[in-house]
């Protein structure tokens, strides 16, 4: 767990990550609040808060007496929101760091292109 942020938010993010990676599938059941609490060694109320956050956002839904499930369309909703955050969390800091290192905007796009090609090449090799 990361020290700076409320744990319930981090739990919600981890569930989202699992949905994005396909570890949790839409309409599939997710672990219970107590199972989350045990697994991450956190207070069950905190785990419950994280799960409820996702229920409010329509990522998870509750089936009475059965448990918690991933909502249809959850993956798309998470992706859309994370794309908005991507600019704020990754692109903006990268631009700031590039500016402080004196990397010109032209050089920056070139660096990204080169990196993309390289990662595509290594992907082919590993296949």
């Amino acid at each position: 767990m990361d020290e700076g942020r409320p744990i319930f938010q981090q739990i919600a993010e981890r569930v989202e990550n699992d949905i994005l990676s396909g570890a949790l599938v839409e309409e599939g059941q997710v672990p219970s609040t107590n199972e989350f609490a045990m697994f991450y060694r956190i207070n069950p109320a905190t785990a419950g808060k994280g799960v409820n956050l996702l229920v409010e956002q329509g990522i998870l839904y509750k089936r009475r007496g059965i448990g918690m499930f991933v909502a249809a369309g959850a993956r798309e909703r998470i992706t859309a929101r994370r794309r908005e955050q991507f600019v704020l969390e990754y692109v903006a800091p990268m631009l700031a760091e590039a500016a402080s290192l004196g990397i010109a905007p032209g050089q920056l796009t070139q660096l990204i292109d080169t990196q993309l090609i390289e990662s595509q090449l290594t992907e082919k090799e590993t296949r």
Partner: peptide, 10 residues
């Protein structure tokens, strides 16, 4: 609450 304390200082 523990959650409100976490991250309440930098």
């Amino acid at each position: 609450s523990a959650d409100s304390l976490r991250g309440s200082a930098s």
